[in-house]
Design a protein around this nucleic acid. Sequence first.
DNA 1: TCCCCCTTTGACCGATTCGGTCATTTTCTT
DNA 2: AAGAAAATGACCGAATCGGTCAAAGGGGGA
Lengths: 200, 200
Amino acid sequence: MNEKFFDLKKEKQDRIISAAMKHFALNGFLHASTDDIVKDAGISKGLLFHYFGSKVGLYGFLYDYSMRFMTIELSSYTNKEETDYFEIIKQILTSRVDAMRQFPYVQLFLERAEEEEVPEAIAAVHEKRMSLEEQVGTILEQADITRFKAGADYVITGHILDYSLRGLMLEHIKTGAFSPERYGAEAVRYIDMLKRLSYN
Amino acid sequence: MNEKFFDLKKEKQDRIISAAMKHFALNGFLHASTDDIVKDAGISKGLLFHYFGSKVGLYGFLYDYSMRFMTIELSSYTNKEETDYFEIIKQILTSRVDAMRQFPYVQLFLERAEEEEVPEAIAAVHEKRMSLEEQVGTILEQADITRFKAGADYVITGHILDYSLRGLMLEHIKTGAFSPERYGAEAVRYIDMLKRLSYN
DNA sequence: TCCCCCTTTGACCGATTCGGTCATTTTCTT
DNA sequence: AAGAAAATGACCGAATCGGTCAAAGGGGGA
């Protein structure tokens, strides 16, 4: 890529990054069209290719950028001393909500990238694939599982939380004018209820 | 459409329906390609258009067919006397699992159809849109909500169930060789756990 | 004011893919 | 054997794709 991209006004950089994330997240590498991306970003097609060389180049840059971004967000909102499973989940959620305030589609983009099947897209990424999920996993190891009551399987509970928070996010995104804060607030209510039910 | 479609061997009908459902469910109306559908169904392109006239025609037929199919499945597995919320959820699940044994992508296809934004696709469907969700809603009204303990919000619980069962289904589908039965069995474990936690 | 250079544009390219057609072949029925 | 129905797949024009490039725009130094 062309490093001069970073000399652009921050606002323009973000517009381009956001638009690209959105289309890759929603349609996958293959069906995301560069025409749509530049239209959304409000720039010309030539400019996009001037800075990123190719569609694969753009995709690789985005993945790397998102990875670094989310890693920082995650480490700045999680507390290594917290041992309550649900409070850790809330910290992770908070870091994601904060990230989405700048790039609404980061989370979705990264999830989609992990399922990508197009060889070129995989190749553009495979070097930097030190998954965020590992990081999340490490944090969750700190959790004190013994607080779960008998009859509350913490593995199932974890899956339910994953699916529910993801489904809720998609629902909020689908209903135009996505507000990360509103999503976060509702998500916390879900987490708190499950916490209440899972402990003695 | 051409009514002679129903004179085809049942197995061929199902192959065509399944393939079409799959691609519409996975890619939406616009990005589902008739070339891919006929390749999957193992028929020629001419035949598809011979029976359904156009892509929209095929889509409309599929929606109507799926709607009728699921309506029957639903009414044959739900018991009007059941008042336990979670048991009703299990009956609905059972009807869906049974449906997926014949058409693995019915459920996904119908969900996707409700979110469709392409005008032609909406038009091909809008007459028959007496949503299944209403039917499900009616059945759930029978549920005895008072059994939920304080602190267990039955509305949130309903959403959590929706998101979790859907997420679990997608997970099973993504992991090739989808088995409706295995999905159903795991889903029941989720439901049972939430039932245990939600009642006194 | 003029010039230079970097940014930015969008018309354009060849390739591919799309929904849909139709002359032709294969299969079935009698 | 013959006629009808089922089935094929090469083909069509249109649209869309990723990517190029000559030219326009614009800001700053002399």
